[in-house]
Design a protein around this nucleic acid. Structure first.
Length: 229
DNA sequence: CGAATTTGACCAGCGC
DNA sequence: GCGCTGGTCAAATTCG
């Protein structure tokens, strides 16, 4: 029941962001530690932040940058900021300069990639069309971590459904889908060409369920669901 | 032996 | 229209 109502809420949110024009950008001090993300995991409400980042992070994993994609997501950030109070993820280096236009973000991403004409996430930002209509994009959340392992433990169960060598990258991009029924959340994982230690993880969509780690605790789950969008 | 992963084929969007 | 590219499918293969 909770899941059904969430789905309705999600649908509304997706429609609202049909024309994403801005991305919220959050930067972190290099090698910032992860206790910061303990609140992040909850505050993102349906986006996923690896548990391995939220607590007891492996020494090899360092979050350096986070991109929150779409205007709805940016708006969401504002809501979360209002709800949380006290120091938390989104108060870090928050300023008006952190709101970028889509073009600015694309330019940023292109400049970051070696060769200059690459476009991490750019094509994904292009609007797909279905039968002549603009496809409603899922909210997406992208972050970069320094990690030895490609797939970070985010508490959800994923099934790999594809792998692709992307142009101007040395490493293949892997595609994963949440194994939970009725949960269409996907994620892409790839390594930066210029720094293979860096893993780019992009989540698309929001989970309509809590992490599999918590499934045994149904009470906690129902409480958690109340915080999802 | 069922589940998960791999990998080549296929499809759709976009630019020229 | 054609070629390029990213994303997805699904059969084959591997793994536990």
């Amino acid at each position: 029941m909770a899941a059904a109502s969430q789905a309705m809420l999600n649908q509304g949110l997706f429609e609202e962001q049909e024309m994403p024009t801005q991305m919220g950008f959050f930067s972190f001090a290099p090698n910032s530690s992860f206790p910061l993300l303990g609140s992040c995991h909850q505050s993102l409400k349906g986006f996923t932040i690896p548990h391995s980042l939220a607590a007891d992070a492996p020494s090899t994993a360092n979050l350096t940058e986070t991109l929150l994609i779409s205007s709805a997501a940016a708006k969401q950030r504002e809501d979360m900021s209002a709800n949380l109070g006290g120091p938390h993820l989104f108060s870090v280096q928050r300023s008006s300069a952190n709101l970028w236009t889509q073009g600015e973000v694309n330019e940023y991403l292109s400049n970051k990639r070696s060769g200059g004409d690459g476009h991490l996430g750019v094509s994904a930002l292009k609007m797909k069309k279905i039968k002549g209509r603009r496809k409603v994009r899922e909210p997406r959340f992208c972050f970069k971590t320094m990690s030895d392992v490609d797939v970070l433990d985010d508490g959800y169960k994923w099934r790999k459904y594809g792998q692709k060598v992307v142009k101007n990258t040395l490493h293949p991009r892997s595609y994963y889908r949440c194994t939970q029924d009725n949960c269409g959340v996907k994620k892409r994982v790839e390594r930066l060409a210029e720094d293979p230690r860096m893993v780019i993880t992009t989540y698309e969509g929001r989970h309509v369920h809590s992490p599999s780690h918590d499934l045994e605790d149904s009470e906690a789950q129902s409480h958690l669901n109340n915080f999802f969008f």
